[in-house]
Amino acid sequence: MIHLNLVVIRTDKQEEQVRFYSTLGITFTHHRHGNGPYHYSGSLDGLTFEIYPLHKDATTADTSTRLGFTVESLHDTLKSLEELGVETVQAPASTEWGYVAVVKDADGRRIELVENLRK
């Protein structure tokens, strides 16, 4: 059996990303491992989600990775994200995968939000 246990994004907008992903329900701690860079780390049902600074030789964050999260209420989550100035790129719609919307995080990554239909 395989289980995804770590996702790391790199950004030059750590504080903005923490606000964005905290709005989705992730609680972060700020720390570092040994002499490594300070970063933010949160846990989601056995998955560690970390926000690291860009590598020294990078000038922009990678935006080609698309992430998806299940949220309790899509309406409430979108309302909270809109208050942060987050762009919705796909309005909420019922699909074969559930009630779905797509937004952009602070770096411009497309983030799919799906309402938890098992309430």
Rank of each mutant, 00 (worst) to 15 (best):
H33W: 04
L84E: 06
D12N: 15
H3N: 11
G34Q: 12
G42E: 05
L113N: 03
T63K: 14
V8W: 01
E82G: 13
V86Q: 08
L67K: 10
G25W: 06
W97E: 10
A91Y: 01
V86F: 09
G108A: 03
L67N: 09
K104D: 02
R109H: 10
H75S: 08
E50Q: 15
L113D: 02
F69R: 06
E87A: 13
R118C: 01
E16K: 15
D45L: 12
G36C: 01
S73M: 02
Y40P: 03
E50V: 11
A61C: 06
L6Q: 14
V100H: 00
R32S: 05
D105Y: 06
E72A: 13
K119G: 14
E96R: 02
A58G: 01
A61W: 02
H31C: 02
T65C: 04
V18T: 03
V103L: 05
V8Q: 12
V7G: 05
Q90N: 07
H3T: 11
E16V: 04
I9A: 00
N116Y: 14
L47N: 09
G68M: 09
G68L: 02
G98T: 11
Y21N: 06
L113G: 02
D76H: 14
L67G: 08
Y99I: 12
E96L: 08
E50G: 13
V114M: 12
K119I: 13
G68S: 15
S94W: 10
I51T: 07
K79Q: 15
L47E: 08
M1P: 02
D105G: 06
G34A: 12
H75D: 11
H30L: 09
P53G: 04
G42K: 07
S41F: 03
T95M: 13
W97Y: 14
L113W: 01
V8P: 00
S80E: 15
L84V: 05
N35R: 15
G42T: 11
P37T: 10
F28A: 08
S80P: 01
L44I: 15
R66C: 14
F28Q: 10
T88C: 13
E15M: 06
L24F: 11
T29D: 07
P37V: 10
T27S: 13
S94E: 15
H30E: 14
V71K: 07
K104H: 05
D107H: 05
R109A: 07
A93F: 02
E50R: 13
D105H: 07
D45G: 11
A61S: 15
E72V: 06
M1I: 09
K13D: 07
T59D: 07
G85E: 01
D76T: 11
Y52T: 04
L84A: 05
F28I: 10
M1D: 09
I9R: 00
T48M: 07
K56N: 09
A93Q: 14
A101Q: 08
